[in-house]
Design a protein around this nucleic acid. Structure first.
Lengths: 215, 215
DNA sequence: ATCTTAAGGTACTGTGCGTTACCTATCCAT
DNA sequence: ATGGATAGGTAACGCACAGTACCTTAAGAT
């Protein structure tokens, strides 16, 4: 009954509803990422959208659920901009650089940084948020890079026992102390130029190491 | 006058006072690191120590100052357990492994993890906390490792342009996705065995890279 | 003994905010 | 038209908790 009612009749309502939902999510994104989950107030979100708090409770259920929706949304969007493993060219160095640069840029985006802070802050209280973030975000990045490494492993360009772990190493090098300082707000994000130098150095180490050859 | 009074007379008072201060700090450590700064309540800290909130306000000034004192204390203590650059033996691989293992263990300690979460959560609102943490913690670790690398660079074992950055790379590899998953509470800290495998792999890459030699 | 100084304790205040109870308007089905 | 359901709005509740005003106790100085 309500099924039928919804199916045909719900159409117009649902459209408005979804617009509102999107608007709420966008506003929540601004507020939560700027202030963090706990400091952020539902009221501030509503102020940006207009309307009343009730909207949030009917659409999402509560503050926590709104946050989870936001994290799901944001972490997926961020990753979508990364190159896919099936768009990989022949040259390994070039591939690694493209991938590294793209990841570095994403890591230093204000939205990403804020999301990172907010999620870590809440991870103990909201494990589902932490899991959603990781699976949609860093987890997928590592997986993609691992696939790329696998391809090059197969063709003999490189030799790695565990591509997954190696990928995580490379990404770890990109998420280094500079990243931590930026996350902590101790320095501004690096310029494109600095990013490039950083990626180049990481690649150099990743490919050839630092030991003196011929020893 | 009050100077004189303090100088001789304050002795007994001051001793009790410092005991109390230490007890407050210890209790604050438990509460703040478990709950995070915002969720932690002054009252919970007092409950552990006995006494009244007044003690915190006279000793520290307020909730924020208490947190800063805690972070200063905790981040220094953690680092003190790390090997110093002047205790370095002749073998580079061994040195790197010792250093790597010690850092990995520290990174995975519950206290360290909680501190990391709490500081990141508050970094935007309390920049001084972020700075204190970084300078006493990760910053000092990287510096120590950089000194070690410098020594081996000088003796030609390795070849690095920028030891500071290289040290940060190595540490970045240790603070990889596994660390992030543990920080987020998605998996328990690795066993000593897993830690060792992880460090070994990081060292292998750091020293020799993954590219097929002879190409 | 008494005065002074400061730490420690009690109890209150004020506020911010998530949540909910209740009401109103809209829109489809018949 | 009309009934019924649902989204959206208004206003109030209730609670947790940082901070504080005021009092009490203790310790050293004279």
């Amino acid at each position: 009954m309500s099924e039928i009612a919804r199916k045909s009749g719900g159409r117009r309502q649902r459209r408005d509803s979804e617009e509102l939902r999107a608007a709420l999510l966008a506003a929540a994104s601004e507020v939560f990422l700027e202030e963090g989950f706990q400091s952020a107030s539902i009221e501030a979100v509503i102020e940006k959208v207009g309307g009343s708090k009730r909207a949030i409770y009917s659409h999402f259920g509560g503050k926590k659920e709104l946050f989870l929706a936001l994290v799901t949304d944001a972490s997926s969007k961020i990753i979508d901009s990364l190159p896919r493993s099936d768009e990989v060219s022949g040259d390994f160095g070039w591939t690694l650089k493209t991938f590294g640069m793209e990841v570095s840029r994403v890591l230093m985006m204000p939205t990403t940084l804020a999301l990172y802070r907010a999620v870590i802050a809440e991870s103990a209280r909201q494990p589902d948020v932490a899991e959603t973030f990781f699976l949609n975000g860093p987890g997928r990045v590592a997986k993609r890079l691992a696939e790329v490494l696998n391809q090059f492993e197969a063709s003999g360009v490189i030799s790695i026992a565990d591509c997954q772990r190696a990928a995580e190493r490379f990404l770890g090098m990109l998420r280094d102390d500079v990243h931590l300082r930026v996350v902590l707000g101790l320095q501004p994000p690096p310029s494109e130029n600095e990013l490039e130098q950083s990626v180049d150095q990481a690649i150099e180490i990743f490919l050839r190491g630092i030991e003196t050859r011929g020893s």
